[in-house]
Simulated assay, not measured.
Amino acid sequence: MHYTFADAQTLARLADDIRKAVSDGFDPDMLAGAPFLDEYALVPQPAAGLTGIVTGHPCIADGRRCFSTQVFHIDTKQGVARTLNRLYRLGRPHGSERN
């Protein structure tokens, strides 16, 4: 049996985005179309993912809690995360709404 969990183009885009993140940071124009994830948290799955209330996702209705694909880069100062499939703009970490 053979399983492919990510195609080469997806992994190439991921590698390019991580290079940008660690060198210059993400371009604001690039982030403008990224879904916004509020009350986000890392989820311990077989691979770490994110969960949060999403706005602007192409497949998930606004205001719904979602679970992302595997996380490869998080920058809380810039408020951005890169998962296997997309960028997310980050809002408040989960639990911060109680403070």
Rank of each mutant, 00 (worst) to 15 (best):
Q70I: 01
S23L: 13
R64E: 13
A48V: 13
P46R: 11
D27I: 06
R19L: 14
F67G: 04
A48Y: 12
E39D: 15
E97W: 09
L87R: 01
D62K: 10
G33W: 05
D16M: 07
F5Q: 07
G52V: 09
S68A: 06
H2D: 11
N99Q: 13
L50G: 01
D75Q: 05
P46F: 10
A34H: 10
R65K: 11
G63Y: 02
G25F: 10
G91T: 06
H57R: 08
Q78H: 07
A12H: 10
Q78C: 02
G52P: 06
R89K: 15
G95V: 12
A8G: 05
Y88Q: 08
S23I: 09
Y3T: 12
D29S: 14
G25N: 11
S23F: 03
R64M: 13
T10C: 09
C59N: 15
F36I: 08
E97S: 02
L84K: 06
G91S: 03
T4S: 14
R64I: 00
R82I: 00
D16N: 13
A41G: 12
P93Q: 15
D62T: 01
L37Q: 02
R19V: 12
G79F: 04
D27C: 14
P58K: 05
S68Q: 01
P46C: 01
L90R: 11
M30G: 00
A6L: 05
D27M: 01
K20I: 07
G25M: 11
L84M: 13
T83E: 05
E97D: 12
P44N: 11
Q78I: 01
Q78Y: 00
G79C: 04
L50F: 08
R89H: 08
D75M: 06
M1E: 10
G56Q: 07
V71F: 01
G79D: 00
D27W: 08
D75Y: 03
R65P: 00
R86T: 14
E39G: 12
T4Q: 14
G79V: 00
V71S: 01
A47S: 15
G49P: 01
R89Q: 15
A12N: 04
V80E: 04
G33D: 12
Y3H: 15
R86I: 01
D62F: 12
G33P: 03
V22L: 13
D24I: 12
F5A: 07
V71M: 05
I74C: 06
G49E: 03
N99L: 06
E97G: 00
V71E: 06
F67Y: 14
G33K: 11
D38N: 15
A21E: 07
H73E: 12
G91C: 04
P46N: 09
R98Q: 00
T51N: 02
T55D: 06
I60S: 00
L14F: 07
E97V: 03
R98L: 06
L37N: 00
G25I: 06
L90M: 10
D38G: 04
F36M: 15
Q70S: 14
P28D: 12
R65D: 05
A48F: 12
L50V: 02
A15D: 10
Q45E: 12
P35I: 07
E39I: 01
G33E: 08
G33R: 12
L31W: 02
T10F: 01
T4R: 14
R98E: 04
D27E: 13
P58I: 04
Y3P: 02
